[in-house]
Design a protein around this nucleic acid. Structure first.
Lengths: 251, 251
DNA sequence: CGTGTTATTGATAGATTTCAATCAATGTGG
DNA sequence: CCACATTGATTGAAATCTATCAATAACACG
């Protein structure tokens, strides 16, 4: 089955399988982690699995908010637009991210895949059912939403009060912190390799800057030996602490 | 009873009364609206009523998050600080606003009264109890948090991509929209009087600008006959539509 | 009616944007 | 296999918006 949006194939594959949740590698990172194994079939039966190709949207700002999504693979950018095309990326949704919390009838943002993205899709009605039957899920969603709010406030501080240099440092440090936790404290002094599935333009739109300022600022951080830029989609943090101090406005 | 913080009297009055909720004029605007009259005593028994004087904080960024608050009168500003004193006001909490949703152990922001503020205070434990006993309350909180997220994303767009002029227009329009609803559509073409309990500095910190830019921009809007400024704590919107167009970046 | 606080207005400076050119990586077709 | 086009990133020069510095003005309050 192939859904079409504006004449272009958006979803290359949709799939229903009550057992998807059992083998889902995203479960430990997502809201689904609060559902018992025994109840997982209920969840799986309510979900539709989709794959979204890079550059394609699965949520449109202002569109009817009929579905909720859970990212199980890949990364998507979330953004809002002004009529003249100015864009603000409000976040990047990676594995485990729950999307569509908006209670309003229409979505407040768009979501576009940066790499092939796999999502579980739930209808509004199905999610309501699930929430009624699994209070733990509702608790978890409240927890997730609360955390999102904290992150959003931190981003407001960044956008409203931080310099370009501080914004880039904050962005890099935040990315480091979401690296596989297994490394833990140990890597603080050593090299930390960040994967960047988004373009410089996306970073600029996320940090409220222009692509040129992002580029210039990264170049300067590199010249100062705080980072390395092996290629356009990777950055290595050489001096975590120094960068962290810049990020928090301590320098 | 008078609580002290850093040697200064923070709360001029605290009060326990199981029946407060019955006569609470903030109920229709707050999460408490989902609790039946019959259960209101449970709610009231769990709450402590406090009054906070202007300039005093009842939530400290980074402090232990032991309580949740519900504003029942007045307005507070919510803000985050950088080490060098740069401030970002993340929002203004008016009547009905629920505060402290953060799940973390410490608050992510500070809250300071702009005018005498009355709040209901709940302990973490008590709120958990209430949430377990009243699923509707949990649902409502999720709804509230989701709405807050939408508002936060809109603010990110403002801070990241809008001009000073657009920011002020957005701020004024948002304030107009939260005027008593009884007026409805009718006043769109007529005068709309906005009350500003915050200083120009607070507005600047909310919009990611300086006090001078706020002042200049308001002066220009006045010169263009889009607004009137009868005094420092009031603004009259003369041309709602024109201002709205500026706010949404249509001009 | 001082007096301190808050807001306005002016002049200048500065950080980031804008405009523009170059470079690098990738892909295409002859 | 190599010109050629395309896309994304970098770098430079100039412009612009907002911040900063500074001086008044308006206001609140004892």
């Amino acid at each position: 089955m192939t859904a079409m949006i504006r004449g272009r194939p958006l979803i290359i594959d949709t799939h229903r399988d009550p057992n998807v949740c059992l083998h889902c590698q995203a479960r430990p990172f997502s809201v689904c982690s609060v559902i018992d194994d025994a109840d997982l079939q209920r969840l799986g039966a309510a979900a539709v699995t989709m794959t979204v190709q890079p550059g394609h949207s699965f949520i449109q700002e202002g569109g009817q908010a009929e579905h909720f999504f859970n990212v199980t693979a890949g990364t998507a950018k979330l953004y809002k637009l002004l009529p003249d095309g100015r864009r603000q990326v409000t976040g990047f949704a990676g594995v485990g991210y729950f999307l569509g919390l908006a209670v309003s009838a229409s979505y407040a943002f768009s979501a576009e895949a940066l790499e092939p993205v796999q999502v579980c899709r739930f209808s509004r009605a199905k999610l309501r059912e699930l929430l009624d039957d699994f209070p733990a899920l509702e608790k978890k969603l409240l927890e997730v939403a609360s955390h999102e709010l904290v992150v959003a406030q931190e981003q407001m501080l960044l956008l409203g009060r931080k310099t370009a240099r501080e914004r880039l440092a904050s962005f890099l440090i935040a990315r480091v912190k979401m690296l596989p936790h297994c490394m833990g404290q140990q890597t603080v002094a050593t090299k930390e390799r960040i994967d960047l599935p988004m373009t410089r333009m996306d970073i600029a739109d996320y940090l409220g800057l222009t692509i040129e300022t992002v580029s210039r600022t990264l170049s300067r951080l590199r010249a100062e030996k705080l980072i390395e830029i092996p290629n356009n989609s990777e950055i290595v943090v050489l001096k975590h602490t120094a960068l962290d101090n810049i990020a928090t406005g301590m320098t």
